[in-house]
Computed example of a mutant assay.
Amino acid sequence: MTQSSPYKSTGGLIRIVRAFGYSLQGLGAAWRHEAAFRQEVALSAILIPLGLWLGNSTTERLLLAGMLVLVLVVELVNSAIEALADAVSADHHPLLGRAKDLGSAAVLLTLLLTGAVWMSILVPRWWPA
Rank of each mutant, 00 (worst) to 15 (best):
G55V: 14
L52I: 13
L43V: 02
T10E: 06
A35D: 10
R125Y: 11
L64V: 12
V107T: 09
V77D: 10
F20E: 00
E34P: 04
A30H: 03
D91L: 07
W118L: 10
E60Q: 13
A80C: 12
W53I: 09
K100Q: 08
G11L: 04
L108S: 04
P6M: 08
G21W: 02
A29S: 10
V117H: 12
L24W: 13
V123A: 11
L50S: 15
S4N: 14
W31Q: 07
T58Y: 11
G66A: 02
A99C: 08
P124A: 14
R18Q: 09
K100S: 05
R125F: 12
G97H: 06
L122C: 02
D101A: 15
G21Y: 03
L76P: 05
L76E: 02
L108K: 01
S89L: 09
V41S: 02
P94S: 03
L43H: 00
D86I: 13
W118H: 12
I48T: 09
G103K: 03
G55H: 07
W31C: 06
T110H: 00
S104W: 05
L43E: 00
M67G: 07
L52G: 14
S104I: 01
I46G: 03
V17Y: 04
I121V: 13
V107R: 05
L109I: 05
A116F: 10
L52W: 12
R18H: 12
Q39M: 01
A30P: 00
L122H: 07
H33R: 15
T10V: 10
G28Y: 13
A105P: 01
R38Q: 00
S79Y: 05
G115L: 06
E82N: 07
S5K: 09
W118T: 08
V41W: 01
E34K: 10
E40H: 03
G28S: 14
